[in-house]
Structures are given as C-alpha cells and as structure tokens.
Design a protein around this nucleic acid. Sequence first.
DNA 1: ATTATCTATAGATCTATAGATAATGC
DNA 2: ATTATCTATAGATCTATAGATAATGC
Lengths: 212, 212
Amino acid sequence: MAAEPAARNRIDRRRERTRNALLGAARKFLSEGRSAVSIQEITDAADVGFGSFYNHFESKDQLFDEAVRSILQIYSEMRDGIVALYEDPAEVFAVSFRMTGRLQRQIPEGVRVILHSGMSVLLREEGLVPRARRDIIAAQQAGRFEPMDPDMAIMAAGGALLGLLQLLDARPDANAGALTDEMTFRVLRMFGMNKRAAQKLTSTELPSQPQL
Amino acid sequence: MAAEPAARNRIDRRRERTRNALLGAARKFLSEGRSAVSIQEITDAADVGFGSFYNHFESKDQLFDEAVRSILQIYSEMRDGIVALYEDPAEVFAVSFRMTGRLQRQIPEGVRVILHSGMSVLLREEGLVPRARRDIIAAQQAGRFEPMDPDMAIMAAGGALLGLLQLLDARPDANAGALTDEMTFRVLRMFGMNKRAAQKLTSTELPSQPQL
DNA sequence: ATTATCTATAGATCTATAGATAATGC
DNA sequence: ATTATCTATAGATCTATAGATAATGC
C-alpha cells in the first residue's frame, strides 16, 4: 500500500526501461561535460526512438536536471542505510565523507556528472547537503566540532570533498582510500577536532562498499 | 620593445573593442550558466555585427574558454602585484585567500563564471592554482604548514574557496570580510597551523582592494 | 482497446560564409 | 589601399509533433 511495486505491469516496466536508457545517456554526456548534445544524439545513445524522448521529458534541461537529481538521490539513500549503524554525529559525518571519496572508484562517471555541474550542487537542498548539515549541527551541539556557521562548514567540507573527487578523477592510479582518509582527517581538523580524535575517526574500519 | 603599447593604432583599438565586447557578453551569459545561447544572441548582447564574431573566434567554445581564461589571468596578475609585498609564504597564501573572498563583492559576475565552470578550474595550470601550489610548498618547507600532498592541499583549499564564493554569492547581505577571514582561518588550521598563528594571519590589515 | 514506441517531416533556429559597407592608414 | 565590421543568406541542424507501428492488457 505504502509504495507501489517497482513496476505494475509489463507496459510500465518497458516505460521505465526507456526512461532509464534516456537518463543513462544523459549521464554519459554530462559526465563528458557535453551538455550541448542534440536530443537526437541522446536518443541514439539510449538506443531509443527519437520521439520517445517527449514521452518522458519536456526538454533537454529537464532531462539533465533529473539525471543529476537521480544520482544525488540514489547515493544519499544508500548513505542513509550505511550510517544508520552509527550514533556519534561526528562519526556519521566522517563515515559519509570516507565512503563518498571511495565512491569515485566505484562510479567515476556518476561522480564526473557532479563535478561538471559546478558548485551549485552545494546549494541544492537534496542529496548530501541537508544530511551534512544535520550531522554538523549535531556534532557541534555534542561538542565534537567547534561552533561555526553551519553553512560555512558545509561549503568548506563540500568544497574539499568535490576537490578530492576531482583529484581522484585525475589520478586513476592513486590510492583512493588513503587520499580520502587524509582529506577526511584534514576536514575534521578544520572543524576543530584534536589530532587524536580525528585520527581515530579516520582509521576505523568501514562497512563494506555497497554495489550500486 | 619588450611589449607593444596597448594598441598600435585606431584599427587595432577598434578591433580590441569588438573582441572585448564579445568576451564581455560571453562572461555575462556564462555567469548566468547559459552556455547554450546562440552566437546571434552573443553578438546582439555585445552590440556587434553577427559576422564579426568570426573575425575573432572560431567557435562558441573557444570564446567561452577565452572568457574564463581572461578572468583567471587578469585576477592572478592583480594578485601577484599585491602579494609582492609579503615574504612569508604562509602569509602570501592567507592574503591571497582573503583578497579572493572579498573579490566576490567586487566582481560577482566574474566570480559566477568561475562557479559555473565546475571543479575543473582546479586542474587548470593557470590562475591561482600554480600560485597556490608554490605558496603551499614553500610554507611547508618553511615549517609553517604540516607536510601534505600539495595537490591534496590545493584541492582542499581551492574547494573551500569555491564553496566560500558560492556561499557569498547566495548571501548578498552577509559580511563578506568576516566570513572570508573565518574560512581562511579554518583552512590554515586544516594545514596544521596552531590557533594563535592562524588567528594572527587572518586578522592583519589587508592592502586596499584594487579596482578592476 | 490501450499505451508506448518509432519514423518521418515541417518549421524554426543556428552556423558559417560571401559580399557590401564603413573606417582608417598612408 | 587596407582592414574590420556589418548585412543577408544558403545550407545544415535541431526541435516538436503527427501519424503509423508494435506491444500489452483485458
């Protein structure tokens, strides 16, 4: 009752397949920074009839927007499942950060979409931002982080995270886990944690990476 | 002999005026994230004949690329002039950071171009990046910053800087100087400076803002 | 019978260029 | 005489839609 089964019948499943093919093609082009492709090229890449595009989206912009949104949503729901195990908000923050850095090696293309979409992701009230805000505020109230304008903290941590993802993208052979943990450590230090506490939070074992 | 005078004659000056009008229009559209405008719209906004476009640029992409490059170049030359007064590399870094945050209030449109261009600015070997790398490495060697992979440091500081600029853009009434200094303080802490030293570097008086 | 997909296409838009016009140099 | 700008336009490309086709539901 609460939620429909994934697809009600064969027509709906086919419809969803087409839609996903379009979103996938959009992600592919966005990950290459090619937002100027024609709808024709998109439907070709999706292996879908040209007219089908308009069964699902009103415009290219709408498709691209949904493509970004879907990435943010899928990933942040996954995150929620993972961090449900932790109580300390500082640890939740650290685990999220460490998992997200590692994500670059799992879905480099998806990450590239975000990287190309500019800093404005940090203003979207969906995805990791609202979650990071909650974690940071809670950690501040718990005395784990120094007091600081939460939005500043988000911009600092979010910017550093995006920078890390960009660096990992440019260095395919680097040790992603080590670099990510180093960056997490630095961000925790930036938030006023002492060395030992920051060290501890960035050296605990992580839950296994979920497959996407 | 070393460098030509700004413009040799009237023809050259006119040519440059046209070119600058096109670059200005490109910046305007890029600052609005509208990279899909037609060349026609660009020449209209520049108040320039349509065909003139091709006297100066081969394609829209080339124009946009030069528009971004020109912003980076103009700003970083200005920075070089300012920081020439300082010796301590950590102070050079701090002053650069603090001036750049304040820049958002001076040329919000130019900053918006950078914000829309995505994280890839942090990979460009022009503009602030190579300068920041030199400063960071020098500060590490001088023992002012903790040792750290310089590229990681750049991504962390650059990401935080872009995040700050994005926040300032979204908060036109906020105290840009105060927020910028707070962010600078945090970044210095991230690089391992102690509170007192970081405090000192972010509370010194800045040289007067140059007009652009 | 219903619904989504696909193909074909009209009309709009966009790019690149040719040739005319205007401004400046010599 | 030279050089840049401007206007006009051919041809290419792109979008949005109409109508045909294919798949599924009942």
